[in-house]
Nucleic acid binder design. Structure first.
Lengths: 296, 296
DNA sequence: CTATGTGAATCGCTTCACAGCA
DNA sequence: TGCTGTGAAGCGATTCACATAG
């Protein structure tokens, strides 16, 4: 337990989020989460075909363009309805429309990007934003020295205006690109102001009330996963078992591991963590450690 | 020896990737992919505890700090071995070490970042890189006008040097932050030069030979997934069924949908992968997974 | 008595394989 | 004949619940 915070809703569930936040049974008409996650992929492939004026595609072709196998694609589409023609394939334009509608892209969504450092600027300049019904309502940063500067044609606005901006522009999606230490607070303010979906780029586990979806994008985690597999590959080549045998657990029942014995994996972190110290560590769990992209 | 390099083996399998690329049975000693994806999360939480000099944690505490439930955490740790003490909990330092080792963070990994726009710069400045055994060997960009400029203390080098840089620095992980159109070519060169793990930020499905892992981070996809849920929430409030009824499929057997009726969903990607797509893929990380982000 | 470690049940996604329609 | 749509089987991951160690 921890995290009590001025949340609008009742009990502050923690939950996390990589995928759906929780919500056991809330699918409109039951489209599997895994399928939803692939629809954007299909949409992108279909859009490319559409631009080349290709009228129809078979599940096989579309699947390979999207990088999935055809059985999976057909099963995915079956959740949307029977939009194909046996013996022929799928009508590209029609499918683009159906998927767009299913994903809610037939309407505009206002988003705000908080934290305009290199990453925030990159996101602001990202073309995929505007091209799919996402409208950047504002760019927000806590550094008043940045206020007013133009990024991607939009003026950076100060954090003080966050609530009013959300209100005025009916923002429902917030993108957090701040340092880890500021993420939870920004998140809380966004939620309190009415945002119900958050895309978090800060390396922190965010706590949000029920009903709010959080998805995270974490570079550090991705790299670590790659490292794991990379290590595995190296091991296979040499007949496995190269790793320094794990220190026998029994040898050190309690804390007893000489810092020196530990590879610098842990120690190093402190480097950046220091800066993160900004956000006091009163919070139990998450709170900074891995620094993330810095603001301007 | 280390990192071997599979070389663009025979047929250019497509594969794609969000999670592990494929490889049905290749786990060293069988740690589930879903567990591997969570280890970085635990490590981060543990690191924070370590900095606060907390000696031990219970599965319950650590789980809430990492945003997962305790049963899952205990099951995850059980794959690594019995590192806890019944009735007490886990020794923080010891666990940090074990997880670091398991993830391969006890050794250094050289990475190159290709495409130094806003995103590439953001990644270069990302503190989490250096803090976990990842060493940025070089920043590479195709724009010769940028060559030599310093970003995060490192000089930008020209694409022409890509192969020699990989060779010299024994780079095994490549981060692609170029525009979508250049991604596949950069990927091919990285792989040909010996890179066996790729983190792709370009909104494209990359084709790589077997043995090469690709993970992707795609902002556009994440936003679309959020939009889907956002739409669902709105629907619930109003008693569902607000969406403009789908055009009856039967009404337009073939292409017949007036462009104008389609939301402006299309228009932007035009990838290079379309042509090459081939093999099967795999599902993204354990949970949600994927998404995107464009370069400058 | 507490909190880990884990077999067993459950859930969800993927893959198979083929019926059915154009 | 060709390709979609889908029941059913197969698998992996999550959750349950409790035996077990300290």
């Amino acid at each position: 337990m921890q995290r009590g915070r001025p949340q609008p809703s009742s009990t502050s569930r923690s939950i996390v989020a990589s995928g759906r936040t929780h919500r056991p049974a809330a699918r409109s008409r039951g489209i599997p989460e895994a399928t939803v996650a692939r629809l954007p992929l299909y949409l992108r492939a279909l859009t490319a075909l559409s631009e080349r004026s290709v009228p129809t595609v078979s599940s096989e072709e579309l699947a390979s363009a999207a990088g999935v196998n055809s059985a999976k694609l057909r099963k995915d589409f079956s959740y949307l309805g029977s939009y194909g023609t046996r013996g022929v394939g799928y009508d590209v334009e029609y499918l683009v429309y159906q998927i767009s509608r299913e994903l809610g892209l037939t309407q505009d969504w206002s988003v705000v990007i908080v934290g305009i450092g290199n990453l925030g600027a990159a996101l602001a300049n990202y073309g995929g934003f505007a091209s799919r019904g996402f409208r950047v309502a504002a760019l927000i940063d806590a550094d008043s020295a940045q206020t007013g500067k133009l990024v991607a044609g939009l003026p950076i606005r100060h954090t003080d205006e966050l609530e009013s901006i959300i209100e005025e522009s009916q923002v429902s999606i917030g993108v957090i690109a701040t340092p880890a230490g500021a993420a939870q607070e920004v998140c809380d303010r966004l939620v309190a102001a009415g945002v119900t979906s958050i895309l978090n780029f800060a390396p922190t586990v965010l706590s949000v009330p029920d009903g709010v979806d959080v998805r995270k994008v974490d570079l550090s985690i991705e790299l670590q996963i790659l490292a794991f597999h990379e290590q595995r590959k190296a091991g296979e080549e040499l007949g496995e078992a190269i790793q320094p045998a794990a220190l026998p657990k029994t040898a050190l029942p309690k804390a007893a591991l000489p810092k020196a014995a530990l590879p610098k994996a842990a120690a190093a972190v402190q480097t950046t963590a220091v800066q993160t110290a900004a956000g006091r560590s009163e919070r139990p769990g998450p709170d900074g450690d891995v620094p993330v992209v810095m603001p301007a």
